[in-house]
Design a protein around this nucleic acid. Structure first.
Length: 862
RNA sequence: GCCUGGGUGGCGGAACAGGUAGACGCAAGGGACUUAAAAUCCCUCGAUCCUUGUGAUUGUACGAGUUCGAUUCUCGUCCCAGGCACCA
């Protein structure tokens, strides 16, 4: 063993060994318990960033740990390889999305391998390969057959200049992110998955996701957004038609004084036609369609609306109610129509005040009287019913039921449940995605592509067009197809591609049998491996990716393809990797290496002092990034892994610190030196496992510390994934070991040190596998430490023979003493009261009470 | 606005069942080794005060409360981060 710790040598050596031994390849093995550990696969954006490093390090530690605990561990890696950045990069760099994607995959695979992660690379998948997406297309056809995939008109963010649909996050303050021109809402035929069929099931099962963080479960519940209420029909004056509204407050129906329709509501233009309001309504609807409805961050639009010229009749009391169209009514929720009760809904209140509409109180809070003319805000609390005919005097919570009963009995409406969740729009007018396997024929309309056509291959010879719209419609070889139903020669392929969330909704099943040719996955393999026992990824996917995956799994379940409904048993969402920002007055944000180090940091370009900003999520735009490659060169993979885990528990954000990394490197060097110093003495002895009674006090303490450390590390990893405290426990052990000198070692101490060093190396091996492997082999083992068994602690070694008792007076610490572990409570109390310092403390005072906490603490109250 | 988490030394973080607050690491200071430096090893390290002690007081965002005892439980306030945001 080299005198000095040189990670580059050690790491290259063992990575080569692991690969040549095929150490991380796995197969189904029914004689062993399986453990499926999955980290969210990356988008191949170019290079691995610190967020990946952290995510995959956490996963690798768990995978290696579980393997050492005897599980058959599936730990795969692959690429979420379709998506828009490839198209943008291709246009910018005059290359092709496929080329760009595959190049990135190669780079990133190398980086991951350099980190020493224990992936079974034979199972690598890339979702942009036809072997992968053909099965997604196959399932699409099955879903189409069942009505689970369908096409409908829907509003999308549309940029006229770029002739393309924009995702919500591509709309910046109402403008196209690419060309800066205004984005408008356009009606377009799009493909959808009927996730709303599963809304209730997805919601109900939220409560069974006991292995998920509460935060994520709550976010999923809120996203699904179930509301219980009623749908009520309001007849239109002088017409046989009616407007249907959804409300959760049917108790307030007698206070409803007007109706609001979403601007896109089909009745808006119909009602206003041939009225004096017609022109105003058309103008309003046009204007609202230009408003971006999805951008976050800008303040909510002012509530505004226009009278449609028509009125409704309140079915409860015959009141005439004007019908408005208003920007705050959403076509996508409920029925797209709202019964407005200004006295008891803040939005309606604001609207009524603005347009001088009537306000009628129907719920009176107990102990006070609301006067509509004096009210400054809506009253949304509970109270007694007033102005509501037969229902007056009831509690409004009762009226919620009795009015629903009344509406149902008189056929005016019915109880309904509404969900916030909408169907999943999967159409993208994009090139770099999985083609939707459908065909448009002038004669027969829409027809599914025959299964024999699959995969409908995305042509890779396309030239990407400036402006970003898809080249697919311009490719005759792709577009032109014979109609599979009527044989017409002039049918056209669907040119929309699928949302990339579709690929990530089932990849975890593909990993079980990545090379299977006869279906999405081999049922035998999936039955063995699924569900995923532990899923690890960024909290940013807490809603969409996880919800879509849960939905897609249900679809597979209901087709009889899988036996489970929930794909991920346990979920860990790791926090972000953050770093301070550095800002130069002339050069803006600086990369950390572009500012000098030291007390006063200067810009390396202009030598002005820089300002150190807040600690923020690492991002290219703020330049507060650390390149994993540089770290790997300087410190190696083990140090990088160690620091990622040591600096903070996984679910919290991690603040990157250069000095902290130094500290981690120092710790590994300390272990290295300790090993080289002791190896000559311990190489040929066996680890101590004898009688503890005969040990000298120092050796006994060391022995106890070793077993305490094994206990602590095991429980920290097993119960909570708190690697930071596990690592500090090992540091404590190493600190204690530094108190012994190898040169005056006895045979007994040599055996103890053999145990200590083996334990340190085994306990750290999931975190820092390379250095652990090196020392392991130096200890004389010929097979990989990865194949070793996780150490067990001797419970009898943890038994304390002396206890430290803390003595408080009135809850304040005044003294401590040690006493035999088998001392009784009253003996402890007697000794506490006899303690010199305690006697001084309580002199002249009356003891009112003495509390003794079993073998731990005495509190004397005076 | 609503829903989640969080606020502990100069810093990252411990305290996993209400019982010694600050484990471990970083930074800082001191010492040893060295011609010197680096590296390494050892020691000190929340604040204030004094009689320098296994000293006193104070201290886990702030204010109350429950308790013999609260970083931990309850209520209220402030701040920070994340999510949702006209959802009827």
């Amino acid at each position: 063993m080299d005198e000095c710790y040189k990670p580059e040598t050690v790491e290259a050596k063992w990575q080569a060994y692991w690969t040549s031994e095929g150490l991380h390849k796995v197969q189904e093995d029914t004689s062993k318990n399986k453990y499926y550990l999955l980290e969210m696969f990356p988008y191949p954006s170019g290079k691995i960033h610190m967020g990946h490093v952290r995510n995959y390090t956490i996963g690798d530690v768990v995978a290696r740990y579980k393997h050492m605990r005897g599980y058959n561990v599936l730990h795969p890696m692959g690429w979420d390889a379709f998506g828009m950045p490839a198209e943008n990069a291709a246009i910018a760099n005059k290359t092709h999305p496929a080329r760009w994607t595959y190049d990135n995959i190669n780079t990133m695979r190398q980086q991951l391998q350099r980190m020493g992660f224990s992936y079974d690379w034979d199972r690598e998948i890339a979702t942009c390969r036809p072997e992968y997406y053909r099965w997604e297309q196959w399932l699409f056809l099955k879903m189409y057959e069942k009505g689970m995939a369908y096409r409908k008109e829907s509003y999308v963010n549309w940029c006229e200049t770029c002739q393309t649909v924009l995702a919500n996050e591509q709309v910046e303050a109402g403008m196209c992110w690419r060309c800066g021109k205004p984005v408008r809402q356009k009606k377009l035929a799009q493909w959808f998955f009927k996730i709303t069929d599963y809304a209730d099931d997805l919601l109900v099962h939220c409560d069974l996701l006991s292995g998920w963080p509460d935060k994520v479960v709550t976010m999923q519940k809120n996203w699904i957004g179930k509301s219980i209420g009623a749908e009520i029909r309001f007849p239109i004056e002088n017409s046989s038609q009616y407007i249907s509204v959804f409300t959760t407050r049917q108790d307030t129906i007698c206070g409803a004084t007007f109706i609001c329709l979403a601007p896109e509501h089909p009745m808006v233009l119909e009602l206003s036609a041939n009225t004096p309001q017609s022109a105003a309504v058309t103008a309003f609807v046009d204007r609202i369609s230009m408003q971006d409805r999805s951008v976050k961050g800008i303040e909510a639009y002012d509530k505004e609306g226009v009278f449609t010229g028509a009125c409704c009749i309140n079915p409860m009391n015959g009141r005439k109610m004007p019908v408005y169209t208003a920007n705050f009514a959403l076509m996508g929720y409920g029925t797209g129509a709202v019964m407005s009760v200004p006295a008891h809904d803040q939005r309606d209140f604001d609207f009524a005040r603005k347009y001088s509409l009537e306000i009628i109180v129907v719920v009176q809070p107990e102990g006070s009287v609301l006067d509509p003319s004096q009210m400054t805000e809506a009253y949304t609390g509970e109270g007694l019913m007033v102005n509501s005919g037969d229902f007056n005097g009831q509690k409004n919570t009762e009226a919620l039921q009795s009015i629903a009963d009344y509406l149902e009995a008189h056929d005016l409406g019915k109880r309904t449940i509404s969900f916030r969740l909408r169907d999943w729009g999967i159409s993208r007018q994009r090139y770099w995605g999985a083609p939707i396997p459908m065909i448009h024929c002038d004669a027969c309309g829409i027809a599914p592509a025959p299964e024999s056509d699959l995969p409908v291959v995305l042509p890779e010879d396309a030239d990407l067009l400036e402006g970003g719209h898809s080249p697919l419609p311009t490719l005759p070889g792709f577009m032109n197809v014979v109609c599979p139903q009527c044989g017409a020669p002039n049918a056209r392929r669907e040119t929309d591609t699928m949302d990339t969330f579709v690929e990530s909704s089932w990849y975890f099943q593909r990993y079980c049998s990545p090379h299977y040719h006869d279906g999405m996955f081999d049922p035998r393999a999936v039955n063995y491996w699924m569900p995923v026992d532990q899923y690890i990824g960024g909290v940013e996917h807490a809603i969409l990716h996880l919800l879509y995956s849960r939905y897609y799994t249900r679809v597979l379940h209901d087709m009889g393809m899988v036996s489970y409904k929930e794909p991920f048993t346990r979920l860990l969402t790791q926090g972000m990797v953050c770093k301070e920002t550095v800002h130069c007055p002339t050069h803006g944000f600086l990369f950390p290496e572009d500012a000098s180090s030291g007390k006063e940091r200067l810009c390396n370009i202009c030598h002005q002092p820089v300002t150190i900003g807040r600690v923020e999520k690492m991002s290219k735009s703020k330049k507060n990034v650390v390149d994993p490659n540089i770290l790997l060169q300087k410190y190696g993979a083990d140090t990088t892994r160690l620091f990622c885990l040591f600096a903070s528990p996984p679910e919290r954000s991690l603040e990157w610190s250069e000095q902290g990394v130094d500290g981690s490197f120092r710790f590994l060097s300390r272990i290295w030196r300790l090993s080289t110093a002791w190896l000559p003495y311990i190489q040929h002895v066996s680890a101590f496992d004898g009688d503890m009674g005969s040990l000298s006090p120092e050796h006994r303490e060391l022995h106890k510390k070793i077993h305490q450390t094994i206990f602590k590390v095991t429980t920290d990893i097993e119960d909570r994934f708190h690697f930071n405290t596990a690592i500090s426990a090992v540091m404590e052990l190493v600190n204690m070991m530094y108190g012994f000198s190898a040169s005056d070692s006895s045979p007994e101490l040599a055996r103890m040190f053999r145990l200590a060093i083996e334990s340190v190396v085994l306990l750290l091996s999931p975190v820092t596998p390379h250095i652990a492997e090196e020392i392991w082999h130096e200890l004389g083992y010929s097979s990989s430490i990865f194949m070793a068994t996780w150490p067990t602690y001797r419970p009898e070694a943890l038994v304390k023979d002396m206890l430290l008792v803390v003595v408080q007076v009135n809850g304040k610490l005044r003294s401590k003493f040690t006493i035999d572990a088998d001392a009784e409570d009253d003996a402890i109390e007697r000794q506490a009261l006899a303690d010199e310092r305690i006697v001084k403390c309580i002199a002249g005072k009356t003891i009112r009470k003495v509390v003794v906490v079993q073998k731990k603490l005495v509190n004397i109250v005076v």
